[in-house]
Amino acid sequence: MKDPALIFLAAFLVNNIVLMRFLGLCPFFGVSNAVETATGMGMAVIFVMTLASWITWIVYHGILLPFDLVFLRTAVFILTIASLVQLVEMFLKKSYRTLYNALGIYLPLITTNCAILGVTFLTIDNKFNFLDSTIFSIGTGLGFMVVMITFAAIKERLDLAPINPSIKGYPISFIAAGLMALAFLGFSGLFGLT
């Protein structure tokens, strides 16, 4: 799979990070109560995911591989991402106040978001080059945002629906997410992607 457009589509729809790969479920269920917060969280994820995949790609191919330190991958990646998020937060706070006000509160939540770390592992496992891993992480982040916003819209309606109390909250959210995943299964096989 070399075509960048196919890499993008596969990451965006066919292997959607939330519904097909089950990564980033905590923010998916936790921060999806309103469309605005879902949008903010989605933007923050796209931003950090792309930055993280650049930095970890450089660290992996520039330091870990040449010095034969691949076994340190897990520890190095999580620490890199944690410090990256901290750095981005400080930088935005100082230089881009409006962007910070929009994304700021979501940034600390992202450090332990398995979607970010998962994407950096996947780019390494798929042996992507630098450009491909950029496209892959942007596609994945967009997929996260679209599903998140759609789900937030569904949840806003669910809050008003008269539902049996024992199904209210998490159970109905899971079932709604399951129906969304069922719909997304329809994308598999698109352009021969699996």
Binding site: L19, M20, F22, S166, I167, Y170, P171, I172, S173, F174, I175, A177, G178, L179, A181, L182, F184, L185
Partner: peptide, 15 residues
């Protein structure tokens, strides 16, 4: 497949 996971945990949590 992925939808089954959501459905099973949703029904378990409801019970």
């Amino acid at each position: 497949l992925p939808p089954g996971a959501f459905l099973v945990i949703g029904v378990m949590k409801a019970l």
